[in-house]
Amino acid sequence: MSTLRTTRPIGPLVIDIDGVVKLYQMGTETIHALRGISLKIHRNEYLAIMGPSGSGKSTLMNMLGCLDTPTAGRYEFNGKNVAAMVDDELADIRNREIGFVFQTFNLLPRSDALRNVELPLIYAGIPSDQRRERAQQVLEEVGLGNRMHHKPNELSGGQRQRVAIARALVNKPSIILADEPTGNLDSQTGIEIMALFEELYKLGNTIIVVTHEEDIARHARRVVRLRDGLIESDGSVS
């Protein structure tokens, strides 16, 4: 069984970073959050990024998600040079190509599930009837067809994260980035969320999950381990 998993998925290259460095200036001190990371991620990979606290996982994630640009190094996303892009161009890439799932869900408190899921489509300029249709479809896919008009505070933690996942999926992004997606959930709900990711992966999505729990990382097909801003190991799950 495990030998099957060692075969790498062969899809087109989505993420190609090379020698990426990220420095933070704290007063006079320079913090090396990333010291030279090189990574290639293909379509329909399921990848976990692991490492101890402070190793640079979130920093790398922000970089991959085009929320941030590297201090040095090269970053190509679907062949486009992201490192040279300005704010609004990055916003466009994030909107069309990347789906974010946060540890704290980050839903808009005053909007119901449907409107939360519709939000990326608004920024993409999709007309409202198409928006509604697509958002309903994705909410049904994550099993919330009967919770569309609930506000976040009327949903359980697991349901909130499902809404967030639906929101990440709604624009049919190239990759889904999840930073500690189960960090705020009890273990049973966490398992359910990971099962949902598994399902999405099987449907052909590309998923990158940041976690420091081995149990969670075990769901992925490939694990990248960071330590002190460097890749310590990168390999298939055995």
Binding site: L67, A91, R94, N106, L108, P120, Y123
Partner: peptide, 14 residues
Amino acid sequence: KEIGTRKALGAKRR
């Protein structure tokens, strides 16, 4: 935080 979320989802400056 909401502003950060909106930006992550593709909200531009304007």
